[in-house]
């Protein structure tokens, strides 16, 4: 079973590829959707093509599947149109799949299920990573703002923090926003960097 993963974020592709290899699939190719990717896929003659539903290159791929002579057998979107549950799960997870027509459902379903799980896990991981990055960035900004308050107004650290927090709460803003505004204002007034 030859599986092609079309993906331009290396990370998601490797999360998926690792999962497929663990499950015993070993004929896996990752192709980024750039340049002449269509002719690469034509040369590979895959049985299953997996792609991020959000990729702008899906129209290009579908056109290739429609006109390609290299793939003699027709390829259908998803395995079985009647399996609405699986299709919704795939769409929710952001997976699109193209499968050689005639491939038995029980052979394809495990691949798709795995792709759905891995895509979902990857999306969660990314969201967590973004959160963590934002939190780190927020903390740095708040620390700088605190330092400005401590220096300019002679406050202690807990007082500076409390002042930022109460200002944020009163203005219905995030602390990081207030801190950012303070830093900008301080820079404009030629205060500390």
């Amino acid at each position: 079973m030859r599986i092609v993963i079309i993906d331009d974020t290396g990370a998601r592709a490797s999360v998926l590829e690792d999962g497929l290899r663990e499950a015993g699939y070993d004929d896996i190719h990752v192709v980024p959707p750039t340049g002449a990717f269509v002719s690469r896929i034509e040369r590979l003659v895959p049985d299953v093509v997996l792609m991020d539903l959000g990729s702008p290159s899906r129209d290009t791929l579908e056109e290739m599947l429609l006109v390609s002579r290299a793939l003699a057998r027709p390829i259908a979107m998803f395995v079985d149109q009647s399996d609405e549950q699986m299709i919704s799960a795939a769409i929710d997870a952001g997976v699109s799949a193209y499968v050689v027509d005639g491939l038995r459902k029980d052979r394809v379903k495990p691949i798709l299920d795995l792709a759905v799980r891995r895509f979902t896990a990857f999306a969660r991981m990314q969201a967590e990573l973004t959160d963590a990055r934002n939190q780190l960035a927020d903390r740095k900004v708040i620390d700088r703002a605190k330092a400005i308050l401590m220096q300019q107004r002679g406050l202690g650290e807990p007082e500076a923090y409390a002042l930022l927090r109460s200002t944020a709460m009163n203005g219905n803003k995030r602390m990081a926003e207030v801190a950012e505004a303070l830093i900008t204002a301080s820079e404009l007034l030629g205060g500390m960097k």
Partner: peptide, 13 residues
């Protein structure tokens, strides 16, 4: 980002 995905989102609800 693609017409294919727009179609799928509509067709599959």
């Amino acid at each position: 980002e693609s017409w294919a995905t727009l179609r799928d989102r509509l067709v599959y609800g």
